[in-house]
Design a protein around this nucleic acid. Sequence first.
RNA 1: GCCCCUGUGGCGGAAUUGGUAGACGCGCUCGACUCAAAAUCGAGUUUCUUUGAAGUGCCGGUUCGAGUCCGGCCAGGGGUACCA
Length: 842
Amino acid sequence: MTDQRFDVRFDAGQADARWQAAWDEARCFEADSASPKPKSYVLEMFPYPSGRIHIGHVRNYTMGDVLARYKAMRGFEVLHPMGWDAFGMPAENAAMEKGVHPAGWTYENIATMKRQLKQLGFALDWSREIATCDPAYYGHEQALFLDLYAAGLVYRRESAVNWDPVDQTVLANEQVVDGRGWRSGALVEKRKLNQWFLKITQFAEDLLAGLGTLDGWPDKVRTMQENWIGKSQGLQFAFDLSNGEIVEVYTTRPDTIFGASFVAVAPDHPLAQGVAASNCEAAHFIAQCKQGGTTAAELETAEKLGFDTGIGARHPFTGEYLPVYIANFVLMEYGTGAIMAVPGHDQRDFDFATKYGLPIVRVIAAEPSAADAPLTEAEAGDGVCVNSGFLDGMAVAEAKVEVIRRTEADGCGAGKTVWRLRDWGVSRQRYWGTPIPFIHCENCGVVPVPKDQLPVVLPEDVDFSVPGNPLERHATWKHVDCPQCGAAARRETDTLDTFVNSSWYFLRFASQPADKPFDMAEVAQWLPVEQYIGGIEHAILHLLYARFWTRALAHVGAVDVKEPFASLFTQGMVTHETYSRKDGPREIYFTPGEVDRSGTGATLKSDGQPVQIGKVIKMSKSKKNVVDPEDIIADYGADAVRWFMLSDSPPERDLPWSEAGIEGCGRFVQRLWRLFGQFDGSATGDNTALARKTHQTVAAVATDIEALSFNKAVARIYELTSATEKAAPSATRNEAIRTILLLVSPMMPHLAEEGWDALGEGGLVAEAAWPEVDPAMLVEDEVTVAVQHMGKLRDTLTVAKGLPKDQLEALALASERVQRSMDGAEVRKVIVVPDRLVNIVT
RNA sequence: GCCCCUGUGGCGGAAUUGGUAGACGCGCUCGACUCAAAAUCGAGUUUCUUUGAAGUGCCGGUUCGAGUCCGGCCAGGGGUACCA
């Protein structure tokens, strides 16, 4: 007697609501830290509450959800939490554009997005929800920041920001478009401010070494972080200057020292500043270097400019005097802020030397005889030293050692390890972030806010009608008494980089006492995160900062974890075309929903006029190329959307969004529903082939889910579904149907619950166990072997598995098609790969 | 500029990691059912000059054998320290 529900189509709308309520009521996704079961912490990168969930979120959270539900079926106590990376610029932009308060805007977005996530039926522990803009979260962050300060990991120094001279405000790199402020259109300048820094460089060696232990991370991410940290062994030495001073330079290529044809210092180097004090041309040049933004891409691609100071630098080995330039491509942050320039073997130096007519000397050649081969571009490759005095004939590596040895012996320099990694600047001159808990006192200097006065809470009455930091302008907020001497003092008005918020949220998810950031012992129950899933765009910054912050907390004894994420999976981005129009210096973007794309071009629905079709790039709030999943949930149900996210595209690859395909997923939901309805309790008898297929599929899908290869798991399930549909009723077929239901339950949980219930299984499928596999059923007894002649396929043979080589060879040679292809030629060689192929070489 | 990645039918992709290229899905075509449509079911679907040949972005190399390994290019994407 089958359930009457199977007489009609599966009603996703009804089932989604019903089972979401049932899971809530059973509280089956709330993680129990005290559970005796083995623990599994599955985490997806928490979203910025930008307004509404987009397809990229759905993809990310569906993957994590399948893994979390699968892990639960395998007997783990699963922690699968969700929260909100709720501080950030878009809230302030909304405040400026729409006059809404950042807090109100953010919390409304959170409410909307939480509702949308719930519609997707994710197995999330909402009891642990976090919003980083909640003082209950950021207050603990302020306490941790003070702990790091006490441990000497926090300091202040000057650093450059993008300055908009018209709006009188600091701009994010994203807000600088073609060197101009995005609102004012003014040319952006570099301006120095006193800012807060975290000593990430103190952990550089350990962060680098730690990469070697992260077996569960993609190699590409480890490589990117390794390059970012950028350990290099080089030489730091001093040039004696013609004005009696010295200048320290750092080079990673001491082997090329004889090719040095000038010395260059950064515009903000003390030497440059000294020259500028008495030379207005130099001062003018330095001022010119201040133009433009602060990004590496901008600095590297800008035209190389220099100013000859007239000072000479004495080469330590030749005694020759090299000109000293102030150059815009030398960075004060790296090494000593001064370089010896070797045009022959560094492209930046080559470009500069060409422009200013400086000598370009070859000092490295493929072989000694090529010493005078002309250079048309810088050659950075390996070779032997030429035109290099005592280094001539030495290999690059050997010469590096020799130059460092001589320099050290002469006492004018030493070998030195230098890191590309710079300390983490965490100051932001913005309102919507964690207030940095310090007070500036004229008597006492920089004073930490006492912990019993935390949290330092953001004022609510702020004005966004003028640009700049509202905290700075607030009438009363920054005026406080010094906690040490009681005198009138001033609060720090910078807030923390939002990457600080996301550097420890995974700890707060694991343990959230009211009186402290987290409990160390409870954190130890769950950490490290077993599987972390998020976008590849976070490969360096977020992931490196989180690794650093965890180490810093371990350094102050707050946690006993070193690496926070045991395994990392970087999903590809969901991409879409952009649509825009120029409006003066600003580019105005439109959402796909606002655009009619039916013709060859694209027009705006509201006015029928054309819009520019931009590149296919990652979906982002600022480019508005986002698609709203809620409509397709309404049309097809949560399960079809989830299934679609998992099908087809390999999860690590980018997914260009298209509407096509979702309908097919909707059809498959119905197809499964019909199949469940064919469960026939009265059927008897076995079907060995189907039983084998079933067990093989269970094993393969488990492997695929554990590897997060959901697209492959989906293909396997399609195959088993087809085979089961075609089979005649039998006990085996019933078992196959029941198995399919369990296999799809992490992916299509609503459909699975409805089917489980209709089949009278009892309890929730969310709490059911993964089907057992009989290893004996995985082995096939026949295999198909390819037969090739000269590497080209000529025939296939179906033979018993494990057939010996000589028999395979004989069968292959006997093949009529092979004989025809060989056309009587003599067999020179036969390659036999058992169970796979035979290749005959003539 | 620099670092990392990707490139296979009309489309998304698979290929036991050097061994039958195109599994599975989408789309499309034809057929069945229907008064008709939807839904469903079945067959087909890389290309071509089709006893066969070519084919995995392009050019070359290694190998009995290359989508897979090596060298050189091209195109697209991500990051580039204040987007998150």
